[in-house]
Computed example of a mutant assay.
Amino acid sequence: MRRLGRYEFSKALWERCKEYLSQHKTLRLFPLSFKEFLNLFKTKSEREKEVQELQKIIKEKIQLTDDEEVAYRFGLMIVETASKPYFSYRDFAAGSKNSLVAEKQEPKYFKAVIKAICEVYNVEGVAFLIDEFEEVAFPKRMTKKKIYEYLITLRRLIDISEEENLWIVLAMVPSAMDETKVMDTALWERLTHQQLETMLTLEPLNEDECINLLIWWFDRVREKNSQYKGTLFPFSDDFRKLLKRPEIRHPRPLIKIGFFTLSRAENKKIEPPISIKFIQKVIDELYPPKNEKKKSS
């Protein structure tokens, strides 16, 4: 939802509601824009009155939900977009201050969100990609309480996926898969109830694909007429020699290697092209070879 953008989402919802709004029914030479609509309400009482009107429209006219509280929160989201045109994590954490989700209403709220996305963007379904799920399986920054809340929310989303056209994709490293099985067997079984159909393994890229990915990544930030377009520069041409290990031949490790190599080369004032010896050192720090892992353990 943060990627979606609160202003865009609220505006799209408002577009669905506006034909029923009293302000929209007023005769105007030019149609009321969303920005103008938000500027109509100067006081708290005016905003509250409009939230209640939107609540009724959302529940009775466009029928995103049959729940009064959920409809009210949607109306609140639209009206308060003027002062907060972006989403934050706390907007979707039930119980937190100014949350858009009422306590114990998460399933109904998220179900309404899925339905709203489908309607306002004219799509048949929604796919949620939850990347780096190993952060849950191997927590470094998350407390036990946060993990517990996270998994409860995930279960609720799975419940919704059984009723709505919602697809949930969890991406994780293989070791996190094994840990998740132990951590929450019931959840894992729900995620993999059709083993062959629901589990996908990303095979390592071949060397040419790795090179092409890095070239694409470099080219995104090059100047339009750069002579280095389509090349590995500032990496040396023999970078291919470092691609023997399958575990680093995936998009995420490759981009991570690229980022940290450039960052450290800049800090150490290394002149390009950056040697494979320097890059190898970065790779070994980020992804220690398996034999070194055994020694350290």
Rank of each mutant, 00 (worst) to 15 (best):
V120C: 05
D178R: 14
L214Q: 01
F138V: 04
M172N: 11
R190G: 09
E197Q: 13
P107G: 11
K115R: 15
D178N: 14
V136T: 07
E197W: 00
K140L: 09
K104I: 00
E179F: 01
E207C: 02
I158M: 11
V79I: 15
R156Y: 02
Y148N: 03
F92K: 07
F87T: 10
A171Y: 05
E207A: 11
N122A: 08
E124H: 13
I78E: 04
I114R: 13
F110V: 04
A137D: 02
L205S: 05
T201R: 02
T143C: 08
G95E: 13
D178W: 12
D131L: 05
A112G: 12
Y86R: 10
I215D: 08
R141W: 11
A127F: 05
E164Y: 03
S99Y: 00
R190F: 04
D184N: 11
P174A: 07
I152W: 10
L154W: 04
Y109M: 01
W216A: 11
K145A: 15
K181N: 06
T192C: 13
S83H: 11
D178V: 01
I117S: 12
N206L: 04
F87D: 06
E164I: 03
C210E: 03
L166K: 00
N165P: 10
Q105R: 13
F128R: 00
S83C: 06
K146G: 10
A127G: 14
A171I: 14
S175V: 12
D91S: 05
K115I: 08
E189N: 15
S175F: 05
W167N: 12
Q194C: 09
E207N: 11
D159H: 13
S175M: 06
E162V: 06
L100T: 01
N122V: 05
T81A: 12
V126K: 10
P85H: 04
E162P: 05
D178Q: 08
L154Q: 05
S161P: 00
I78A: 05
L213W: 03
T192I: 01
N122R: 08
E207K: 15
D159E: 15
L154F: 02
T143G: 10
A127V: 13
E124P: 03
N122S: 10
C210H: 07
L151A: 04
L202S: 07
I211G: 08
Y150E: 12
L205Q: 08
L151M: 09
V123D: 08
E179H: 07
I215S: 02
E197S: 04
E164P: 05
A127W: 06
I152A: 15
L213M: 13
V182F: 12
K84L: 14
L151W: 04
E134K: 01
N122M: 09
S96I: 00
Q194H: 08
A82L: 15
I117E: 10
D208Y: 03
V113I: 15
Y89D: 13
Y148S: 15
F138C: 06
K84N: 09
L170N: 06
